[in-house]
């Protein structure tokens, strides 16, 4: 399932996938895979992304059914 919340948060800060990848220390393809829902990141990477985007885990990764 696509993570549109992450994509929206990144776009709101006018960051490219590469910018976010550089900030959290992963490859651009990894950020792309997370946004597309192809890869489930570890909690360590989730926290790093949240910190980079100034969001909480709930705001980016909690999926309300």
């Amino acid at each position: 399932m696509k993570n549109l919340k992450l994509k929206a948060a990144r776009a709101a800060l006018d960051m490219s996938q590469q910018d976010l990848a550089d900030k959290v220390g992963v490859s651009r393809q990894t950020i792309n895979s997370i946004e597309k829902g192809d890869y489930n990141p570890t909690i360590k990477l989730c926290i790093a992304i949240c910190k980079a985007l100034g969001k909480t885990l709930d705001e980016l990764f909690w999926d309300e059914m």
Partner: peptide
């Protein structure tokens, strides 16, 4: 260490 990320 650090050469590849967790997905890689």
């Amino acid at each position: 260490d650090g050469k590849f990320d967790e997905r890689q």
